[in-house]
Design a binder for these strands. Structure first.
Length: 729
DNA sequence: AGCACGCCGACT
DNA sequence: GTCGGCGTGCTC
């Protein structure tokens, strides 16, 4: 006797597939199974209960399930429901979504086996020995005290202690320390008197969160840089894990700033917290996933994909820097970790805290609509006023390699006063173009519609869109002139200019070209914090999270780029970036200075930012978005197509547009060739769908997308749908 | 996606 | 004559 089961298969096809299996071993929904699918073996996930075949479907029409991998569901009913919601909302095939919920090791079919992490624990004898220990036994004391204070600690958690290997051996031999059987990690509980004193603002936020209770509610914690958001997070976490709850703390893809993870470890103990990010190998990620799924891991600090971790006892989700665009996945399943976090809060009945100094307009709009509460930390903990931005009108100014004399003078003044200076320029390389002085020829990418950036240090022209690189021509390929000019300024060139102008200062460049490894960045950051660097030149890499106590001047080389962008979110992002960069200045006692170079000193958005800070700018932008019916006042989905010719891509999108269901409040914009039509040798075009309400958007998309593969133009073409796109190109 | 089938060019 | 190019179709 056999029955049928629906199995979600990791292929880009909507829907799931039916397989047969004997009634003696029917796997439950959420179990992995091995199946033959179109001439190959794949691992799928059971998505239905067993059913009897109908009259018209003989069993012989179905393939058998080859192997059942899990005896118990790997994905809980809650996770299966989350997967189904994500598949429906982002219009992505269920098989690929459910696979995305698993770590790579489990996708490959490895057994779901949680290895016990050996942990060391102090014995009674050890506690007694601690009192009798001679004063000179400092290393032993450090180890015993760490174990006394933290309960059970893994070997990795002891690595910071001097001479740990020898001390541990001695303690085990003496019976002072034993290997603990895997125990529920118990968070350290500090007495009120051991906790940092809260500022009145922090105390208000903590109280408001407590008053909101343990059920679902969403809060925007808006705190300026240095206002102590982390301490508020820690208090909320303490409450959530006190009775066995689990906490998800999502951070942007900075990976370079483990401070938050360290703070959580320090406060609650090393066994209580795991990180989940791209720095871990597949095996380690798999173990964190399984620990989270077991309900015995209290806290995970992780990047975007951590929003998809199973947390059976979820009691709190925090999204730090919620405005950060790295929470949106930019390929494949294009989900927003922030939005998934809020959704999980509501489905799994847990509070959600969104933290930012510069919240996204989407979040601010929900605060205005009173769907989210607002908790503000308007003051810095150490009561230095945040720096004031000032615009520097550079029109007609004699530029010195992109820097106006007023800015150069300010740099000199701050250096002489012993301050550090940060120059922000969001453009890598030496110059964004190389041009022939005699005929105007410029170096362009052979695969993309883009100019090549001149990387002088490496002696190469590099395409920032596809990565192609070439040796610059010795003479102009068009007129054989040797007069090639570098036009515009990137980090390399600003660095060079400053080295020449301030030869006595140490100038360091912070960008992804120079700092390939986390280690290199850490080393340079350490040098900077310890005052050995005088001038920092860098990209957004410098805007996030790093504290420099000696920084007194921030210069923004070019604020104008964003003002002319085709992307309607560019100004919002500029405001966030400038506010974050400015927040780096003036942290040690004196108020910092921030100088923003612009050719548009009267631009309303810039003026608003200067006069009314980010909040003022956000209010202005929200007003503009409402007028223009742009998000968050409408909802978008972007259909992208990529083909070998522009005609094919456009024809496909025309055909697609023609069969879009007509619904009130839903309109299509385009199709248009993508702002950069040709990228890595393929032609791209896109069709934007705009809807006044979300329900209408989904009513249009749901029947529409399955049609697209049947269109005649779909052959040899790749298309994808992006719901709530953040980058419109 | 990825694999098979199928129908056209240059090779031991 | 075959090996293999990648266009088209299909996946329970």
């Amino acid at each position: 006797m056999e029955v049928l089961l629906s199995v979600a298969v990791p292929v880009p096809i909507y829907g799931s597939f039916d397989y047969r299996i004997g009634t003696s071993a029917v796997p439950a929904p959420g179990c992995r199974v091995e199946i033959l699918f179109n001439h190959r073996t794949l691992i799928g996930i059971v998505v239905s209960e067993a059913r009897e075949p109908g009259e018209t479907e003989p069993l012989s029409r179905f393939r058998p399930i080859e192997r059942v991998i899990d005896a118990e569901p790997l994905l809980s009913p809650a996770m299966m429901a989350l997967g189904q919601w994500i598949a429906d909302y982002y219009h992505h095939p269920i098989g690929e979504v459910l696979t995305a919920l698993l770590p790579v090791s489990l996708r490959r079919g490895e057994p779901a086996q949680l290895r016990a992490t050996p942990a060391y624990r102090l014995t009674e004898g050890g506690l007694a020995a601690l009192d009798r220990l001679p004063a000179r036994s400092q290393r032993l004391r450090a180890l015993l005290e760490a174990l006394r204070d933290q309960g059970a600690v893994s070997r990795a958690g002891l690595n910071g202690i001097q001479g740990i290997a020898a001390s541990l051996r001695r303690c085990l031999d003496e019976g002072w320390v034993e290997l603990a059987a895997e125990a529920l990690p118990s968070p350290i509980r500090l007495a009120e008197s051991e906790l940092p004193q809260l500022t009145p603002d922090q105390a208000r936020a903590v109280e408001a969160l407590e008053a909101a209770g343990s059920g679902f509610s969403t809060h925007l914690l808006q705190g300026v840089t240095g206002s102590g958001k982390t301490e508020v997070y820690l208090r909320a976490i303490a409450r959530a894990i006190a009775h066995g709850g689990q906490v998800l703390l999502l951070v942007p893809e900075i990976g370079l700033t483990p401070q938050l993870l360290d703070r959580v470890r320090e406060r609650f103990g090393e066994m209580v917290v795991d990180g989940y990010h791209s720095g871990l190998n597949d095996a380690a990620r798999g173990q964190v996933w399984l620990r989270a799924a077991s309900g015995r891991l209290p806290v995970v600090v992780g990047t975007r994909s951590a929003a998809l971790l199973p947390m059976p006892r979820l009691a709190l989700i925090i999204v730090d820097e919620e405005h950060d665009t790295s929470f949106k996945q930019q390929d494949g399943l294009r989900y927003s970790a922030r939005d998934v976090a809020v959704l999980r809060g509501s489905r799994e009945n847990a509070p959600v805290i969104l933290g930012s100094a510069t919240p996204s307009l989407e979040t601010l709009q929900r605060v205005q609509a009173q769907r989210y509460s607002l908790l503000r930390l308007p003051r810095r903990v150490r009561s230095v006023d945040p720096p004031r931005l000032q615009l520097l009108d550079v029109r007609g100014q004699p530029f010195q390699q992109g820097l106006a004399p007023v800015l150069v003078a300010a740099i000199e003044r701050h250096l002489q006063a012993g301050g550090q200076v940060l120059l922000f320029i969001n453009r890598r390389g030496y110059a964004p173009a190389l041009i022939c002085h005699d005929c105007g020829w410029t170096a362009t990418c052979t695969h993309c519609d883009a100019r090549l950036t001149w990387h002088r240090g490496r002696g190469r022209l590099i395409c920032h869109h596809c990565g192609a690189r070439q040796v610059p021509p010795a003479a102009c390929p068009q007129c054989q002139s040797t007069q090639m000019l570098a036009v515009g300024h990137g980090t390399e060139r600003i660095e060079e200019t400053l080295r020449t102008r301030f030869p006595e200062a140490r100038v360091e460049r912070f960008d992804s070209d120079r700092l390939r490894s986390v280690r290199a960045l850490q080393a340079l950051l350490k040098d900077t914090r310890e005052g050995r660097v005088n001038i920092l030149v860098g990209t957004q890499m410098l805007a996030k999270g790093h504290d420099f106590a000696g920084l007194s001047l921030v210069g923004v080389v070019d604020a104008d780029q964003a003002l002319f962008s085709v992307d309607f979110r560019a100004v919002e992002r500029m405001g966030q970036l400038l506010t974050q960069v400015a927040g780096r200045a003036g942290r040690a006692g004196q108020r910092g200075e921030v100088i923003v170079q612009t050719h548009q000193p009267d631009h309303p958005a810039l003026r608003r930012l200067i006069e009314a800070s980010y909040d003022g700018l956000a209010a202005l932008l929200l007003h503009e978005r409402a007028e223009a019916q742009l998000p968050p006042f409408s909802h978008l989905a972007l259909l992208r197509a990529e083909a070998s010719t522009e005609q094919n891509a456009m024809d496909f999108l025309d055909a697609a547009g023609a069969c879009l269901p007509t619904l009130p409040g839903v309109q299509k914009l385009g199709p248009v060739p993508a702002p950069m039509e040709r990228r890595a040798g393929r032609f791209r075009a896109q069709l934007l769908i705009q809807a006044l309400d979300r329900v209408a958007l989904h009513r249009a998309l749901t029947p529409w997308l399955p049609l697209l593969d049947t269109l005649p133009g779909a052959r040899g073409l790749r298309w994808s749908i992006d719901v709530d796109p953040v980058d419109l190109y």
